[in-house]
Design a protein around this nucleic acid. Structure first.
Lengths: 179, 179
DNA sequence: ACCATAAGCGGAACGCTGTTCCGTTTTCAA
DNA sequence: TTGAAAACGGAACAGCGTTCCGCTTATGGT
């Protein structure tokens, strides 16, 4: 469905896009996922308008920044079982300075992030869950998407709150799924 | 710690405070918990400044609006067991047009809502959980606050999303807590 | 090497938010 | 009735994501 464009992207555009991805990655680590777009633009040495020439929405930039790590997580699905994979998924969400929080914050941003992350990972989760169900180790009445949503939700607000351990709650949830 | 004020509240102040509580309740139902303060003020027929004379923060107004229902929920703890009480707690969060979402949205607002709701309900949850643990029906390694946080998180984004059933995930979580 | 053209850029401007500030109005007790 | 204190209304502020548009810059044809 993607037609080859008449002309390729201009060189400065390509350079700026990469700068933005690098800058956003750095700023997200330093100031959290909810850092203002102006700060990302400044870090990249571009104007704010340039962000929106490359990414339709702030959420799309977030998705692009973590694309590689999401791909890695998808690949890990070939080597580990459901439990370990879920815990890695949780680690990813928690350690990225409020990624889970950002997903839950506003309705419209959620759609973008959901499309970028969960939809990508859902097949992997489905396969791993299928393995457990087939082996009789887990119940068959929970869909992979539900599971991922639940795990994602449990990760919210977990960073920097020593009263709440998301990992432990996820383990409890997984225990509740055993057949 | 609350000293009796030299003079009681002025009559118009008392009236406006009640108007604000009523208006906020109506607006929250109509437009969700994240409705703008200006809309609440307009509905109440007051200026925006008046809101802040009565409630230090938007989140405090939210807490005040739902205070009665939180009290009811606390009272219900005398009549039902943990499982039912948790499900009622979840119903409360889900049906209030994104209360759970609002709690997770921003860090500072969360503190207020947490103080207003969770701290109030924590003793009830603790007692009910204690009953289950003493009866040997549940594990003793989960603290009531963790449980409430987890349940609250599972409720996020549940309203109007037919792909995700928070109640079911909460039941799975509870199943994971059985001894 | 030049130049026309279109792609890309920067940042001011817009619309929205919660919150603060302050001149005006209202209440209440003396 | 009146003066002082309390409360009010809404303009103003700061910060957000996003849009817009005049200017700059890269690029393919000459």
């Amino acid at each position: 469905m993607v037609s080859t464009p008449a002309r390729p992207q201009r060189s400065d555009a390509r350079r700026n896009q990469q700068s933005l991805l690098d800058a956003a990655g750095a700023v997200f680590v330093r100031a959290g996922i909810d850092a203002p777009v102006r700060e990302i633009a400044r870090e990249a040495g571009v104007g704010t308008g340039t962000i929106y020439r490359h990414f339709p929405t702030r959420a799309d930039l977030v998705v692009a920044v973590f694309q590689h790590q999401v791909d890695s997580l998808a690949a890990v699905g070939d080597d580990v079982a459901l439990r370990d994979w879920i815990l890695r998924f949780a680690d990813f969400l928690v350690t990225k300075h409020g990624l889970a929080d950002a997903m839950a914050s506003d309705r419209v941003g959620f759609e973008r992030l959901h499309a970028g992350f969960v939809v990508r990972l859902e097949p992997i989760c489905a396969r791993l869950l299928g393995v457990e169900v087939s082996a009789g180790r887990m119940r068959d009445d929970v869909r992979p998407l539900e599971l991922m949503r639940a795990v994602g939700n449990l990760c919210i607000g977990a960073e920097g709150d020593d009263e709440y351990d998301a990992r432990r709650m996820i383990e409890v949830l997984l225990r509740g799924l055993t057949a």
